[in-house]
Simulated scan of single mutants.
Amino acid sequence: MALGFFWATILLGFFASVLALDIMGLFRRKNHFPVEGRTVLITGGSQGMGRGVAKLLAQKGANVLIVARDVKKLESAVEYIQAAAKSPAQRFHYISADLMNPAESERIMHEAAVWNNNNPPDVVWCIAGSAAPELFLNTPVERHRQLMDSNYWSAAYLAHATLRSWFKPRTPPPATPASTTTTSKSVSETETPVTTKEQSASQAAATPPARHLIFTSSVLAFYPIIGYNGYSPAKAALRSLSDALSQEINLYNGARHHNPSLGPTADVKVHTVFPGTIYTPGYEHENETKPAITKLLEAGDPGQTEDECAAVSVRGLERGEYLITVAFLGSAMRACAWGGSPRGNFLLDTLMTWITSIAWLFIQPDMDKKVWRWGRANGMPKDAKSA
């Protein structure tokens, strides 16, 4: 028994060391998310996380197009983002649009392509969304629908328009007319035949970088807490959409490799980022309606600035991760909720799942007890009593 415990401790220490080295990037040196000279479209780019991401990608050499509703905020944000550009050759633009209108997504992609020399953006990052924390019973039904439109449908509409643009079939090249006169040549008289291996190497060298569709969910998609009952389901739906698309996109990517001359010009990858607390104007607005019990459960949660959140998110993309968390707490919550989602590092992610599943045996009951004790001490919420 003691010997088994000793070796279990050694093994756990080894895995923890490997995990730390992996987090530091020792095993994944390749950049899976190059953006220099490429065009990135970001929704919600006029403030908060969206603005932070746009600024960081401008520093890395990307051409950036941001989307939001408020023109004044957009104009100010473009100036702010452009000031961080790596090169004077980079280009910046904004589009004012209501993302909750499905027709607007088609317009956005059309205008973005026109601005981008008649090519669709290389990266589309859906960050726009909103939260208004409140108890479920105290939230009007119309507001629940609005939260779903703002956080799920706004991204789903744009994803649909984006993928249709990226996977649009190309026109077959015209057939080369046969020559009326032919001259027979022996193999020795013709050019040296190109081998299959050489052809594959040539095609690989000519393969353009993958395009990226990125959703922005929330750690509350892994573990909802009281007060976010109108917000968490929308963010969980985004994760589910991402999982579904990660399978469907494989179909199109495979078809492209089956016939590169007719398929899309590049492979496509899908990702989802799961931020936690970000100190933005939106967060300050949330606290105006947030129930006291929600604030109690969130007490001690580590927050980030928009720039910190952007930096960790982009590092995850550069490592090639699929579900990207921005802090250890988010990673622990993700580990408890992996389900059938594709995993980045199967061994380390599975180990993290085992560890956190045990920890959650204590965390979950503690959270539930806090809520029950709050109800016992304070009684029914005022609005809920009159409902």
Score class of each variant (00 low, 15 high):
164 R>F: 01
214 I>M: 10
219 V>R: 01
188 S>P: 10
191 E>Q: 13
153 W>D: 05
214 I>L: 13
224 P>K: 10
218 S>D: 08
165 S>Q: 06
204 A>W: 00
189 E>S: 10
216 T>M: 06
222 F>P: 05
251 L>Q: 08
231 Y>N: 10
149 D>R: 05
228 Y>W: 15
199 Q>F: 12
171 T>F: 07
156 A>E: 13
173 P>L: 14
166 W>F: 03
160 H>M: 04
195 T>G: 14
229 N>V: 03
144 H>P: 00
157 Y>W: 10
149 D>M: 08
162 T>P: 06
232 S>P: 13
241 L>Q: 15
168 K>V: 00
162 T>M: 02
249 I>D: 06
175 A>V: 15
164 R>H: 02
163 L>A: 03
176 T>K: 14
218 S>C: 12
232 S>A: 15
155 A>L: 01
245 L>T: 08
239 R>I: 05
245 L>Y: 11
193 P>M: 05
163 L>M: 10
202 S>R: 05
235 K>D: 09
166 W>N: 02
201 A>S: 04
193 P>R: 06
193 P>Y: 02
160 H>V: 04
169 P>V: 00
252 Y>N: 08
207 T>N: 07
169 P>S: 03
182 T>H: 13
222 F>S: 09
184 S>A: 09
160 H>Q: 11
229 N>S: 13
197 K>Y: 15
213 L>N: 04
229 N>Y: 13
177 P>D: 04
250 N>K: 11
155 A>E: 05
244 A>C: 10
246 S>L: 03
230 G>Y: 06
203 Q>E: 10
247 Q>M: 04
145 R>W: 02
222 F>L: 07
195 T>P: 06
168 K>G: 00
232 S>M: 09
161 A>N: 07
168 K>S: 04
175 A>N: 10
151 N>T: 01
163 L>I: 09
243 D>K: 07
232 S>E: 06
147 L>R: 02
248 E>R: 12
193 P>W: 01
202 S>F: 07
160 H>R: 12
